[in-house]
Design a protein around this nucleic acid. Structure first.
Length: 423
RNA sequence: GGAGAGAUGGCAGAGUGGUCGAAUGCGGUGGUCUUGAAAACCAUUGAUCUUCACGGAUCCGGGGGUUCGAAUCCCUCUCUCUCCGCCA
């Protein structure tokens, strides 16, 4: 969430910038500022009341020690009112604090100046494209036909075991998947990311820290008995490594990469766009995360984009990089670049990565801060993450784009992981 | 799952009702000494809110209670450790 101080100091900018995200902020911003003023005044009243009480208590202590029992008891009699006073003020204070907090979590992150207005996907801006469009032979098939014919992925079996959207990968399909994971993780390690294997269920505090809770709980699978959530992305457990942590300034940036399965309920999706591997309830992904110094975060965002670009390039996939418009930008993000690869037999662009800078929006929720030697107080870090990459659509594009009459050609960079070059 | 023990500052570890944000040691930082380093010695070294500032308030796992006053007493939750059981 945004800090109250930032909102108060940049009121007009917050309102106009959030309009780019199609968020009408004027009213809530006024409320926040008013509540904060009230909070400060209540705080000082409650502090004064408490200070008075502390002084009297000390006095009473002294009287008892020096044997002036009567005087002490007389002083004691005076405390009842003061206690009442303190209770009233602190109750009001915590009420106002809660109200303020409830408002703050409703305000989305302010978009970066480069973000253009727009309603949704259709208004995203292509900033770059690359790779070569494949020319498919006559009779080229979409991946859902290929995987069935070659028995690479079994949707019906997954449906039997679990339900729709939980496929079973088999044989070379499973090996290709594993090869991609290894390849992505190795590339991340080479780029200086520390590999971690985090839990794939998280508690409520973690869900709140990265912004999935309280608003988007419907998108996560929830184990109600233990109040734990299946992660929708490794971003959640990995970024939460730094919840309530103060990092030494010279240790920034912190770079982590993680492979995890991801779970999304995706309630309300249907139709051709979700066919085959296009949209699943469970899928695999390698995620890269950085905890960054605020002054460096946009430079780092570029580096992360370049890293992801290297992956799709090496896989030989035609891609384009989209800068998300205000309307498509997520609640918590300030700037996001989506990577899409062209799935030739479907004739569609598929989103395979989303690389975002959250500035200090998540860090404020997480209380992730850094401190330098000559800093009096710790400051919020910036947090960034990106998929590098999400597997199913990458697989779909590889299968479709690389199909030949002799079979499917495995991208060269993967052969050392698969052990075979044709499927 | 059963029984017991515990949770204090970056770490280790004292403190069982009053001046304790908390002894001491280690670590960190600055300094003295030294050609330099080590050692030794001295000083300094948590966070949050509030205030222009001085200052004030809060924090000893979380929450609640008793008391004029709680790190210290009571209740409750969470977590950790030990033993037993079960188990990949």
């Amino acid at each position: 969430m945004l800090t109250v101080k930032y909102i108060a100091d940049n009121k007009e900018h917050v309102i106009s910038a959030l309009a780019v995200k199609n968020f009408e902020a004027a009213e809530i911003v006024e409320k926040v500022i008013a509540l904060d003023t009230e909070r400060k005044s209540l705080k000082s009243q409650s502090d004064n009341a408490q200070a008075e009480m502390n002084a009297l208590s000390k006095e009473i202590g002294g009287l008892f020690k020096s044997g002036k029992i009567e005087e002490a008891n007389a002083a004691k009699a005076k405390t009842a009112d003061m206690k009442e006073n303190i209770k009233t003020f602190s109750a009001k204070l915590s009420e106002v604090e809660q109200e303020l907090q409830a408002l703050l979590v409703q305000i989305p992150n302010v978009p970066h100046p480069s973000v253009t207005p727009g309603k949704g996907e259709e208004d995203n801006v292509e900033v770059k494209n690359g790779g070569e469009m494949p020319t498919l032979a006559e009779g080229a098939k979409p991946h859902w036909d290929l995987i069935k014919e070659m028995d690479l992925i079994d949707f019906e079996l997954g449906t039997k075991i679990t339900g729709a959207g939980f496929p079973v990968y088999k044989g070379k399909g499973a090996k290709l998947q594993r090869a991609l994971i290894s390849y992505f993780l190795d590339e991340a390690s080479d780029a200086g990311y520390l590999e971690v294997t985090p839990p794939i269920v998280v508690n409520e505090a973690s869900g709140f820290g990265t912004g999935q809770l309280p608003d988007k709980e419907g998108q996560m699978y929830h184990c109600t008995e233990d109040n734990l959530y299946l992660i929708p992305t490794a971003e959640v457990p990995v970024t939460n490594i730094y919840r309530d942590v103060i990092v030494a300034e010279e240790e920034l940036p912190k770079k982590h990469a993680a492979y995890t399965p991801c779970f999304r309920r995706e309630a309300g999706s249907w139709g051709a766009h979700v066919r085959g591997l296009n949209r699943l309830h469970q899928f695999d992904k390698v995620e890269i995360v950085q905890i960054a110094h605020p002054a460096q975060s946009y430079e780092i965002l570029d580096q992360m984009v370049a890293h992801v670009e290297g992956l799709v390039k090496n896989l030989g996939l035609p891609y384009r990089i989209m800068r998300l418009c205000g309307g498509d930008l997520s609640f918590t993000s300030a700037l996001t670049f989506d990577f899409e690869v062209f799935s030739a037999a479907q004739g569609r662009w598929l989103e395979v990565s989303s690389v975002s800078n959250f500035e200090n929006y998540q860090a404020n929720r997480l209380q992730c801060r850094y401190k330098g030697k000559d800093m009096k107080k710790p400051e919020l870090t910036h947090t960034l993450n990106g998929s590098a990459l999400a597997l199913p659509r990458i697989m779909a594009a590889i299968l479709e784009n690389n199909q030949t009459p002799e079979g499917i050609k495995v991208p060269e960079v993967l052969v050392r992981y698969t052990g075979f070059d044709m499927i």
